[in-house]
């Protein structure tokens, strides 16, 4: 389908359908909006992905220490955003980010900072989406990290204690290497999920301001289901697949190199 000029006329009558070869892809390469959407998606994946993994790991480490009680309660609380509907969450966060009445700007005001127009300023719109996405997702990866942490044999730490290794040293030379397979898995699924960014910008910014939050999937949706350029939209979807595939391969390579 990505090799045809499938559009609203073809939707009504299939005989209007024409084979256009690679023309959709060539058009795509020259389409500045497509490149903007790719750039924004990469921004979201490269900044949001590692941040999300780091927050999940920290939360998992926190809940894995023996000093903390009520672990179950905290775990459920941290997990709650994961199960909730993304659209509803986006609706709530739109008001949290409200330039005048939002809680975030209120807190910023308390510590003496000037309010930020989170969703209206192209420089802050993407960080705002990233912050919300991390808040929503970290619980999921946290659960997987906790499972990974519990699989690390206790005697490794005991031996390190006897040798006099500090907590920091133990973290870097036991926890991180032992968690490597878990981390790879989490990085890959987080990356794949983040590449598919859609509902957040759809509900909160409609891709704006100035296309600063236009993601690849949102662009695909707009081309395909708002303007009915179905052939063109399919080629965008296929490019998304290629991006995800390349990203996954790179992650596996990186993992191999560090081993």
């Amino acid at each position: 389908m990505s090799f045809t000029d499938f559009d609203i006329y073809a939707l009504g009558n299939l005989s209007y359908l024409r084979f256009v070869g690679l023309r959709n892809y060539l058009r795509l390469l020259e389409d500045p909006l497509f490149w903007t959407s790719v750039k924004n998606t990469f921004y979201f994946v490269l900044a949001g992905g590692p941040l999300s993994v780091a927050v999940s790991l920290s939360a998992a480490l926190l809940l894995n220490t023996k000093l903390i009680k009520f672990k179950g309660l905290f775990r459920v609380t941290y997990f709650l955003p994961v199960v909730t509907t993304l659209v509803a969450v986006a609706v709530i966060w739109r008001f949290i980010y409200h330039p005048r009445f939002g809680i975030i700007n209120y807190v910023l005001g308390l510590i003496g900072l000037t309010p930020i127009d989170w969703l209206g300023d192209p420089a802050f719109s993407m960080p705002a989406l990233i912050l919300m996405a991390v808040w929503k997702n970290f619980g999921y990866n946290m659960i997987i990290f906790i499972a990974g942490l519990q699989n690390i044999p206790e005697d490794l730490y005991e031996a390190a204690d006897i040798e006099g290794a500090s907590a920091w040293q133990q973290f870097w030379s036991i926890t991180i290497p032992q968690l490597a397979p878990t981390t790879l898995f989490i990085s890959v699924i987080t990356m794949i999920g983040y590449f598919q960014l859609f509902a957040e910008p759809y509900v909160m910014t409609q891709g704006g301001p100035l296309s600063s939050t236009l993601s690849v999937v949102l662009y695909m949706y707009q081309e395909g289901f708002r303007w009915w350029n179905i052939g063109y939209s399919t080629s965008i979807a296929f490019m998304l697949f290629l991006l995800i595939l390349i990203g996954t391969v790179i992650q596996f390579r990186l993992q191999k190199d560090t081993e």
Partner: peptide
């Protein structure tokens, strides 16, 4: 603190849903 950050948006959502129109748009929140 992390639990509060996670839960605050929900708390605010529930509480604002019971407010009269316009009440949630106040400063301070």
């Amino acid at each position: 603190l992390l639990a509060v950050i996670t839960f605050l948006p929900f708390l605010w959502m529930i509480s604002a849903s019971f407010m009269h129109p316009g009440e949630s748009s106040a400063y301070p929140p």
